[in-house]
């Protein structure tokens, strides 16, 4: 899997590259729009991560030009500008996803993976982590083969965690996916739901759903994520 990262802020580029390489992607980095566009034209990338404010050639213009010869490559926009109007404009120009700075690296990884999956692999209908099983079609959850009842929000939370098993998800990521932006004022709602969910899937003695202090939550059947 080969990615192109177009980001003029060198430190941030290095950081994102390191995180992507750790996920076994091979990453090319361009520090300005013109170089980015030249690279995008020369190689067949699986995904492009594009900053908007770039020297030489503006990110929006890079996106427009890329779309002219390659309408399919997924493009994830990274930017510090996040007004609704700007967002809408870029989705219309052909961006596939949008992430506002400052973002959590984990969030970026989740988005990148989901964009890569799109179109290529089908969504698995049954998610499994350890003894836990979640059927996306029938909306049923089993713990050691035994059916457990979850509320809609608990189900959404569990599904999101399981779909990204082994990855630490921050509270704000969980809020954005399971609730919506309007709940950002109430950050401990995630903690409360996680506590309830934990109670239902095997109690406190099991280590399936762990808290990573200060960062967020992770579901995995390994000892360390």
């Amino acid at each position: 899997m080969r990615l192109l990262l177009v980001e003029d802020e060198e430190k941030l580029a290095r950081l994102v590259k390191r995180a992507l390489v750790a996920e076994r992607f091979s990453v090319d980095v361009a520090h300005d729009g013109r170089t980015g566009f030249e690279l995008a034209k020369s190689y067949d990338y699986d995904l492009i991560v594009l900053d908007l404010l770039l020297p030489e050639l503006d990110g929006s213009e890079v996106l427009r030009r890329i779309r002219r010869f390659n309408p399919h490559v997924p493009v994830l926009i990274l930017t510090a500008r996040d007004s609704v109007a700007v967002k809408v404009a870029h989705f219309e120009a052909g961006a596939d996803d949008y992430l506002t700075k400052p973002f959590a690296l984990a969030e970026l990884m989740v988005r990148v993976k989901s964009l890569m999956r799109r179109g290529t692999a089908r969504r698995e209908s049954i998610l499994r982590v350890g003894n836990l099983e979640l059927d996306r079609l029938t909306q049923q959850v089993r713990w050691r083969g035994k059916r457990i009842e979850l509320t809609a929000k608990e189900h959404g939370l569990l599904e999101y965690l399981m779909a990204n098993s082994g990855r630490v998800l921050s509270r704000s990521m969980i809020l954005d996916h399971v609730w919506d932006q309007s709940f950002h004022g109430a950050t401990n709602i995630v903690d409360v739901y996680v506590r309830h969910l934990r109670g239902k899937i095997g109690g406190d003695e099991q280590k399936l759903l762990r808290t990573v202090r200060g960062v967020g939550y992770v579901i995995s059947d390994e000892e360390s994520a």
């Binding site: 941030l12 506002t100 400052p102 959590a104 690296l105």
Partner: peptide
């Protein structure tokens, strides 16, 4: 936002 993104990323990596 950009420096904040870098700080958060570095800290996440360090963690």
């Amino acid at each position: 936002r950009t420096p904040l993104a870098i700080i958060r990323g570095e800290l996440e990596n360090a963690h």
